[in-house]
């Protein structure tokens, strides 16, 4: 099993309003098919690490190797393509397009990728919604769904292009324990069935404990992994 992500001496500083080093010499690697969680107190840099790893934040020093490629050598457009094809995102606030239907939201990344015809994309979107038990909600507007349902739609959207890795930024932060449990089960299933890597930032200790691996951050440094 190879590493999907590997970092070498990854550091990041904020300059505004004051000089502040958010990440210090981080060397971590995530294997393909690994379900890892990043934990730490607030301000420890865990979200920052996630944004850097997921290519959204490019203002860092050191190296990140994603699927063998050095990300620091990639252009903004290359990174957008990588995100589109190989990375799925699940955020705390679900970030669905509220006026669009569930089905349309799920289709968005696939339409951008344009690897399949529109028919096929719709077919695949229904498959993902099936997987998450949302087929009957497909034609509803996204903002008409409950929080737990919206989070599952966001997961379905993250899955549509069958990415190598899924990043979750507090994906259960806004959910009750039943829905959190539900999301956890889904992630676990994805890892087992599709060998997808999953990296989740969470402060839910109970959630973290059940993942394969816990990476703990404190003041921008990895203190255990």
């Amino acid at each position: 099993m190879g590493n999907i992500i590997e970092t070498k001496n990854l550091s990041k500083s904020f300059h505004d309003p004051v000089e502040f080093q958010a990440l210090k010499n981080i060397n971590v690697s995530i294997k393909q098919g690994e379900f890892a969680s990043i934990v730490g107190s607030s301000g420890s840099g865990k979200s920052t690490l996630l944004y850097v790893l997921s290519t959204l934040d490019t203002d860092y020093t050191g190296h990140i190797f994603f699927d063998g490629d050095d990300l620091s050598l990639k252009s903004k457009n290359d990174l957008a393509e990588i995100r589109n094809e190989k990375i799925g995102f699940v955020f705390q606030f679900h970030y669905l397009l509220p006026e669009f239907t569930v089905l349309e939201n799920v289709c968005l990344p696939a339409l951008k990728l344009a690897k399949y015809s529109e028919e096929e994309i719709r077919e695949r979107a229904y498959q993902k919604l099936d997987l998450l038990g949302l087929r009957d909600q497909a034609l509803k507007k996204a903002n008409k769904l409950s929080g737990g349902q919206q989070q599952r739609v966001a997961i379905a959207r993250a899955l549509i292009n069958e990415p190598k890795i899924i990043f979750g930024d507090e994906p259960t932060g806004n959910l009750d324990s039943k829905n959190s449990q539900n999301v956890f089960e889904i992630f676990k299933e994805l890892k087992e069935k599709f060998n997808q890597s999953i990296v989740v930032v969470t402060h839910d200790q109970h959630f973290a404990e059940r993942t394969d691996r816990i990476i703990t951050l404190s003041d921008g440094e990895v203190i255990s992994q």
Binding site: S54, L56, K76, N77, A80, E81, I82, R83, N84, E85, I87, F89, F91, F93, Y95, L96, L97, L108, P109, K112, L113, R157
Partner: peptide
């Protein structure tokens, strides 16, 4: 703005 953020996160380019 949230729409813009999510579209960018899921791979839409600046030009899109």
């Amino acid at each position: 703005m949230p729409d813009i953020a999510i579209l960018k996160a899921i791979g839409y380019k600046d030009s899109d």
